[in-house]
Design a protein around this nucleic acid. Structure first.
Lengths: 240, 240
DNA sequence: CGCAAGATTGAATAACCTCAACAGCTGTGG
DNA sequence: CCACAGCTGTTGAGGTTATTCAATCTTGCG
């Protein structure tokens, strides 16, 4: 009972601060005023959109900022970031072409949005977005579907974070990149992004990947180019 | 390197099967045909609803069942359950009065729905539900808001599961029950439900609660009746 | 080249889990 | 009424997994 007693006296539960909180805000993004036709979004909304360009590592929005815009990804990869007070980070979602950000928010963004690669977004004023949705049934349906898929993805990730081992998490993660039978993966995000998405550390991510490599379940050209050589083994691990 | 080597040879990554998969399907729920006016849902939808009663531990829907109905909780508490192939379980959400289930699903339910307490639900045929939504803007807005709040809750839980310690998870969990300044909590769910929601084991849940009790941050009449005596300490732990 | 950032690897540690025992409560049946 | 079984919850001991801390390697890039 000695350790518990000690913890009791110090009121326990402390946690060390991580050293590096590196994400910086970069100079303002370029915006082209040209109206770009977006495949997959209904007519009226196209008029409202503004094309925005962001560079690698640039912050599009911080968590806590007033949620004035809805974004749609045209190209590139971004991360939706949440932070705890002491800097621990979680990435709820990686966004790629076709994904929306900011639809489901309240007054403020509840997570930040950061560019992982150079990327192009469409930006819609949020208030006009809402009213347009109600007048345009087709667009409304589409957005509703988007939210539903996001919810499903989040709930899927909950199971992963709540109950899967490190190896299972990485197997699931890697497999999510080769839906279409292509076994060649190009990961746009770095190890720390993967770790913060899967609730692990970069060291654990690295170790598990190394183990996969040793098993010859995957092969790697470099850290971001992975070829899945035994999808059946990974699928057995992913277990869902 | 001995252990890693051994793991490599056996292809590693195994995991023991949990012994008890106890949830059973009970006899069919009673349904009263009377149409009940639901506070908070718009007119036309009320006509479609059917009131359903379920008893404690009864299964409303299993994951994988065709998603034919949308449910709205009138009273009682339920759990939304996901399982891995080997029986590991996660509870994405506890549902209470006013919560919906089945809106965001595809063809099949992606999680099961089980009554924790005796409860009353409104059941709507899903196809009619959809069409009614499109014709009734107010109802559509309301449902859209529901989904958005669900998504926000899921993303909030992602951060908890991905990055919080056991003590922090339980602090967050307990605080989520006393939003309105009342420090008396009555937990309708058992320890294993809490554990499966927070990604912990029942033993860890029990130990952390004991520790909170020893710190005099909470006091307990019995296992399900908790009084929060030091909300500031718990809030500091919850850290968000 | 030399530096910085990302990635990998190793050793030690901490957090949480597993297994096991036990306590408390509830309902059942003699 | 009491004995008993069954279930939930608590507690302890020991093991496993993932983390932490640290060193090394790799890869651009000015």
């Amino acid at each position: 009972m000695a350790t518990a007693q000690a913890a009791l006296q110090t009121e326990g539960f402390q946690r060390a601060l991580p050293a590096n909180l590196t994400t910086r805000r970069y100079p303002a993004a370029r915006s082209t005023d040209a109206v770009v036709a977006l495949p997959g979004i209904a007519g009226p909304l196209q008029q409202l959109g503004q094309t925005m360009h962001y560079m690698r590592s640039e912050v599009v929005e911080d968590a806590g900022d007033p949620a004035d815009y809805v974004y749609k990804v045209v190209s590139g990869t971004l991360r939706a970031v949440r932070l705890l007070a002491d800097g621990r980070r979680h990435i709820a979602k990686f966004l790629t072409a076709g994904d929306y950000f900011g639809i489901a928010e309240g007054d403020d963004y509840t997570s930040g949005l950061e560019a992982i690669t150079d990327c192009t977004l469409m930006r819609y004023p949020r208030n006009k977005f809402q009213t347009t949705l109600e007048s345009d049934a087709a667009a409304g349906r589409q957005l509703f579907g988007q939210i539903c898929r996001q919810l499903e993805a989040s709930n899927h990730l909950l199971l992963l974070l709540g109950r899967k081992t490190a190896a299972e998490r990485l197997a699931s993660f890697l497999l999510s990149f080769c839906q279409h039978g292509n076994s060649e993966i190009c990961l746009p995000m770095c190890r720390s992004d993967i770790a913060d998405h899967l609730g692990l550390t970069i060291e654990t991510v690295s170790r598990v990947i190394t183990k996969f490599k040793q098993q010859r379940w995957i092969s790697m050209q470099d850290a971001s180019h992975i070829r899945i050589t035994a999808p059946d083994k990974l699928e057995a691990l992913a277990a869902n």
